[in-house]
Design a protein around this nucleic acid. Structure first.
Lengths: 339, 339
DNA sequence: CTGAAAGCGCTTACAG
DNA sequence: CTGAAAGCGCTTACAG
């Protein structure tokens, strides 16, 4: 089947190709009646302008890029990215933008992808995830002047705009809640060290514990997998002064921690309270259901997409603060049992 | 920063644009020495050919499309798609193909996306997931002659090639295993009705139960969510002749079923054995760990990608049978406790 | 082996 | 308001 071109539409409408282009793009230069007729014909013969031709003649590629740098098993098990993508897509689809996805092995590969996309003019802009301290991607994107929105922060984004959520505040709220329940020995199983949001949470945890006069604010670093979450939990629960509450940096580790507690004969929440960051449906599937820090991730993605599209059209945008995660208490937290 | 074009490379190399094109694409027409020099210069100034220009001049778009038709919360919670995408990406990246992802609301929207992609020449081919009986997407893709690979089957793919796994065989193996353990009342919580693989499993379940002389092979339809899995489980466990073993069509429903059993005071596996289809890391996070039917999903995606790329280059390909899921027995299955 | 040129399908000033 | 034409950056026959 032959793809219809703008010339086919022009011929059938009895106008020039230029007129068709104006009509399609909502530009002045054609009468309203002609525009209607052209649009009707285009729809009738199933015409969509060639994205290549459009991109080549100076218009935009109508595509944005997302490079993800996580191994397959972590990517699969964390609902975060798919929920984010769903939200991004909603916003993009409304403007007929495509999302180009690439899974990369490391930061060098990711930077190479950005350079290639830029050279190929394949995307009009990109999202940056998993921001790091001194992130090497930032200066590259600044140099290329490729529109970009950082999903994360605050700060450490160079001159790039960002969409972020106040993790420090959410963590403080959580610790204060646990302390209000009567907990004094609170520990944390953290995400990958080096990621900005991990560091922000770690610092906030240390500060709030210090402020509230809690003994030692232990953060055990981990990598978001269930295995590591389980191992970290065993270590914490085997110590002489074991914690009565643990905060996990994602839901999968929290579920693994719950299993470990049960396997070690500790009652949840009687002997151990558990809080999960990222409130996915998984948290409500286990027994007891997990108290969790949640927020609307698809909406977060939608905001990021909206800002990226604005940046592409040349609007001057800066940092946007998304909602702060809120705590939903469920069965996994309670006052510590007196021993 | 200005993007380098083929003309920049040609100028610096002192050759024509045509020569640069030949050198870049490994075509004859330039000497080996010249080719090397051109490639070195291209690398030096960071030149990547414009994908738009390339696509416009008759070459391929160097992109394939994947449209996903599931709501955000299901998309997020099922590791399947992200694992599939990871595998697809590995194969695509090796050939510098991009993956264009689109989340759609329903089949009509999905079909519209295919027509648009085709008209825009945005992709060279597409993957089709979640095959249905009498799938309306098949004739559209045949009509458009857009290269496509169906991820699913066997059969019901019209003239399109497919990559599939023998779900019927896996289900039979599972039921036979449960019967060998001594189970007689086996039930199943199925996936979305209408999806081909759901129907294949349902039919295989009915047949094997009949062959082995088991009483009534009940399949309760569901939708892959934990809530529905829990509800279906409550219904099954509340019946007079409750099953002693349940097979779930995904891991999330199985985990929900485990919670329901515990909430109803039934021991797993003593009173109830549980088998999950899709052996994600989640299955090992719960207590007891779930016996599961698993296979290598990233590899499945890689095979699909390899076949799609072959179809795009015009190779004649047909159906490819991937490995059959195999059962990994864990703590959630055992002989039924005598009552 | 190399160079000059046409053409892919659009967009967008520029005349009418 | 409309038409003719240049140009985006490649690929690929066609001459030399």
């Amino acid at each position: 089947m032959k793809r219809p071109t703008i010339a086919d539409v022009a011929r059938r409408a009895g106008v020039s190709k230029g007129a068709v282009s104006y009509a399609l793009n909502g530009q002045p230069g054609v009468s309203e009646a002609t525009r209607r007729r052209i649009l009707a014909i285009a729809a009738e013969i199933g015409f969509s302008p060639s994205s290549a031709a459009r991109a080549l003649s100076g218009a935009t590629a109508k595509a944005v890029g997302l490079a993800l740098c996580r191994p397959a098993r972590i990517l699969g098990i964390e609902p975060f990215f798919m929920e984010l993508i769903s939200g991004v897509e909603g916003e993009l689809a409304a403007r007929s933008y495509a999302l180009t996805l690439q899974v990369v092995a490391d930061q060098d590969a990711e930077i190479a992808v950005y350079r290639r996309w830029w050279g190929e003019r394949r995307v009009d802009g990109v999202f940056i995830c998993d921001l790091r301290l001194d992130d090497r991607r930032i200066p590259v994107l600044e140099e290329l002047q490729l529109p970009a929105v950082v999903i994360g922060g605050p700060g450490h984004t160079g001159s790039l705009p960002s969409v972020w959520s106040d993790d420090a505040a959410a963590l403080v709220e959580t610790v204060e809640y646990l302390v209000a329940l009567g907990h004094r020995r609170v520990a944390r199983v953290g995400g990958l060290p080096g990621l900005l949001h991990t560091e922000i949470r770690t610092r906030a945890f240390a500060e709030v514990c210090d402020r509230l006069g809690l003994p030692e604010a232990t953060t055990v670093p981990s990598d978001y997998t269930g295995e590591e979450g389980a191992r970290a939990t065993r270590r914490l629960l085997s110590s002489a002064q074991r914690p009565t509450a643990v905060i996990y940096d994602n839901d999968v580790m929290a579920i693994a921690g719950l299993s470990v507690a049960q396997e070690m004969g500790l009652a949840v929440p009687g002997d151990l309270s558990i809080v999960a960051w990222d409130d996915s449906p998984l948290c409500q599937l286990v027994h007891p259901p997990l108290t969790a820090l949640g927020r609307d991730i698809p909406a977060y993605g939608a905001h990021a997409a909206r800002h990226l599209l604005a940046a592409i059209t040349g609007e001057q945008i800066s940092a946007f603060q998304d909602e702060t995660a809120h705590l939903t208490p469920r069965g996994s937290t309670a006052p510590p049992r007196v021993r």
